[in-house]
Amino acid sequence: MSEDHASTAIAARVRRLEERLVDAGVVSDAELDTILNRFLAKASPLNGARIVARAWVDEGFRERLLDDANSAIKELGLSLGGDHAELRLRVVANTQTLHNVIVCTLCSCYPLQLLGPSPSWYKSLAYRSRVVRVPRDVLAEFGLHLPDDVEIAVWDSSAESRYMVLPMRPPGTEDKSEDELAGLVTREGLIGTAAV
């Protein structure tokens, strides 16, 4: 990655901060490495894609997922994590007449464990400010042009619930296996800025 002068300066500042906290015994380098490695190994949009594919092939799972997502994803060995208790997961399903999209206007709340680290645009002021007000315009900026008769539901995750969109299964995928179906699901589809 290229580093200009400003980012070199900020990198040095972070190093200094880390050294001071290590010297003071507040944190250790090994602890920080472990935190990062665990996070990068576990948090991935592949988790969200697996959940969606299972819901597409298993109607019972879909119902359990929409009813109590925290319990349902345990069937796939997944959980949401959280600071003081496991965060609540709410999965919202797209239909022919309803399209869901997620945002956090106040900061950047996001189901990290299921979608991986959030994209830059999700944390941008442009997305946070506009998707609650003009969602149709914002989705069009992603190349998603919804028919006028499709209603849009925006979910502003301002508390301890995290939201994930269950996209509609694309037509013509009847012959695909669960794994192949999971391969069709994008991170943007799970946020609601893409159809799948």
Binding site: T105, P119, S120, W121, L125, R128, S129, R130, V131, R133
Partner: peptide, 15 residues
């Protein structure tokens, strides 16, 4: 910032 205007369009490609 919810609902504020003036931040311009979203740039999905920046990611």
């Amino acid at each position: 910032v919810g609902g504020q205007t003036g931040f311009g369009p979203v740039s999905p490609d920046l990611d």
